[in-house]
């Protein structure tokens, strides 16, 4: 990435990267209705018919949650390598290049600082559009640096997770170790009295759910997100029975006691700001 414009993915985030399939009309995964694309976009990528929350790419999420132009990205140039020289049907190196081209991101994670309704904070997210938002070395490192920085700056920390992939297979054991690394950094942040709000969006699974995303002082979920440890297919083949209808949804986690609040995208920014007011500096 060119140093001259480290935020080019932010400023150049054009309409075809807004997470809604191209075309004037689109089909909603939630209710099956055909809806007008512009209506969905104007509605924060939420279906106007059924309230289904569509995927939101990094730049749009930042625009939705943080005050205009307040986000200052950190470590944008931190980029992935291929420590295992991993190749399945496609080499990891090629896969990375393709994902970077597709998303305009260098990796599945963006961190930095910004303001939320005037409140300063450290902000991070994982983008499910980049290798399913999975956590490899770069994601782990960026989050850890952001947490360490939040500890140093004594700022509240908000991390929005969108990670269907959990720990990234292509970096093998190093991905698994990022879970330990990020969690240890959160331990120090916690001991220093820091406020961490984790926002789980669709999907938050595996090693991401089993590390930082579950460790918030507040754990918030968007409606009907898939959240869990093991994938539903793996569970189904293990237990050999039908899974409950709402299994591993936000509502399921709320019912069983692992989510504090489910918040619609429209209210997310104001509700997060309110939580910060209760506990933040």
């Amino acid at each position: 990435m060119a140093k001259s414009n480290p935020h080019d993915w932010l400023t150049h985030a054009d309409r075809d990267k807004r997470g809604v399939p191209a075309g004037l009309w689109m089909l909603c995964d939630g209710c099956g209705s055909t809806v007008y694309r512009a209506d969905v976009e104007d509605n924060l990528n939420v279906c106007p018919e059924c309230d289904h929350h569509f995927y939101v790419p990094a730049a749009v999420r930042i625009a939705q949650l943080l005050d205009e132009d307040s986000f200052e990205e950190w470590h944008q140039g931190l980029s992935p390598l291929d420590p295992l020289e991993f190749a399945d049907q496609k080499s990891y190196a090629d896969r990375l290049a393709a994902e970077q081209k597709k998303t305009g991101l260098t990796e599945a994670c963006v961190v930095g600082r910004g303001y939320m309704r005037g409140r300063p904070l450290v902000f991070g997210l994982t983008d499910a559009g980049f290798i399913m938002g999975s956590m490899g070395s770069v994601v782990g490192e960026k989050l850890t640096r952001a947490i360490e920085e939040a500890t140093h700056l004594q700022l509240p920390l908000v991390i929005v997770s969108g990670s269907g992939g959990g720990a990234r297979m292509h970096e093998g054991i190093l991905s698994l170790m990022q879970m330990g690394k990020v969690s240890a950094a959160l331990a120090r942040f916690d001991q220093a009295g820091g406020l961490f709000i984790s926002v789980m969006t669709h999907p938050t699974m595996g090693g991401v759910a089993a590390s930082f995303a579950s460790l918030g002082d507040f754990v918030i979920a968007e409606p009907k997100a898939l959240i869990g440890f093991a994938g539903p297919r793996v569970i189904k083949s293990t237990v050999n029975m039908e899974l409950p209808d709402d299994f591993q949804t936000s509502e399921f986690l709320l019912q069983y006691g692992f989510v504090d609040r489910i918040i619609r995208r429209h209210n997310l920014r104001s509700e997060l700001a309110r939580l910060i007011d209760y506990c933040g500096q």
Binding site: K3, G77, L78, S79, P80, P83, V138, G180, K181
Partner: peptide
Amino acid sequence: LGVFDESA
């Protein structure tokens, strides 16, 4: 732990 490129 972790392998990445921070030259950029």
